Simulated scan of single mutants.
Amino acid sequence: MQLYNTLSAKERAELIEAAGKERLTISFYQYAKIENPQQFRDDLFVVWDSLDVLGRIYVATEGINAQLSVPADNFNEFKTHLDTISFLKDVRLNVAIEQDNFSFLKLKVKVRDKIVADGLNDDTFDVTNKGVHLDAVKFNEILEDPDTVLVDMRNHYESEIGHFKGAVTPDVDTFRDSLDLIEEDLREHKEDKKLVMYCTGGIRCEKASAYYKHKGFQQVYQLEGGIINYFRQVDEQGLENKFIGKNFVFDQRRAEKISEDVIAHCHQCGKPCDTHVNCANEGCHLLFIQCEECAEKMNHCCSDECKEIVALPYEEQKKLRKGKDNSNKIFKKGRSEVLKFKK
Rank of each mutant, 00 (worst) to 15 (best):
Phe75Gln: 05
Asn65Lys: 15
Asn247Glu: 08
Gln39Asp: 09
His133Thr: 13
Thr80Asp: 13
Met197Tyr: 05
Phe288Leu: 15
Gln30Cys: 04
Val168Trp: 14
Ile142Ser: 08
Lys89Asn: 08
Leu7Thr: 14
Pro313Asp: 14
Cys273Tyr: 04
Glu282Lys: 09
Gly119Asp: 05
Thr124Glu: 05
Lys271Asn: 10
Lys114Ala: 12
Lys307Glu: 08
Pro37Trp: 01
Glu191Asn: 13
Glu206Asp: 10
Cys205Asn: 01
Lys21Gly: 01
Thr80Cys: 10
Arg56Ser: 07
Tyr198Asn: 13
Ile330Ala: 10
Lys329Trp: 02
Thr275Tyr: 07
Gln252Pro: 03
Glu144Ile: 07
Gly119His: 06
Asp43Tyr: 05
Val116Ser: 09
Phe243Thr: 00
Gly245Glu: 00
Leu24Glu: 06
Cys294Lys: 01
Lys10Ser: 12
Val262Gln: 00
Pro170Phe: 12
Phe231Thr: 02
Leu223His: 00
Asp304Gly: 12
Ala9Pro: 00
Val116Leu: 12
Cys266Glu: 01
Arg154Leu: 09
Val168Tyr: 14
Glu240Tyr: 06
Asn121Ala: 06
Asp42Thr: 09
Lys114Glu: 13
Ser69Ala: 14
Glu236Arg: 05
Ile289Lys: 04
Gly63Phe: 11
Val70Lys: 03
Gln39Gly: 04
Arg56Ile: 04
Tyr157Val: 08
Phe125Arg: 13
Ser86Pro: 07
Val220Arg: 02
Lys194Phe: 13
Ile26Tyr: 04
Gln219Trp: 01
Asp261Met: 00
Phe217Cys: 07
Ala136Thr: 06
Tyr198Arg: 15
Lys21Leu: 06
Leu93Thr: 02
Asp42Pro: 02
Gly238Glu: 07
Phe28Ala: 01
Glu188Pro: 10
Gln39Arg: 09
Pro71Gly: 12
Glu292Thr: 12
Leu286Asp: 02
Met298Gly: 05
Pro37Ala: 04
Ala18Lys: 12
Arg154Thr: 12
Ile309Gln: 06
Lys318Ser: 01
Arg92Ala: 00
Gln2Arg: 15
Asn121Tyr: 05
Asp43Pro: 10
Arg254Val: 03
Glu315Arg: 00
Ala66Thr: 15
Lys333Ile: 09
Leu223Ile: 00
Pro170Leu: 15
Val310Cys: 08
Asn76Tyr: 04
His81Cys: 12
Thr148Asn: 06
His267Ile: 11
Arg335His: 05
Met298Leu: 15
Arg23Glu: 15
Lys342Tyr: 07
Val249Ala: 00
Glu184Asn: 03
Arg41Lys: 10
Asp171Tyr: 09
Ser86Asn: 08
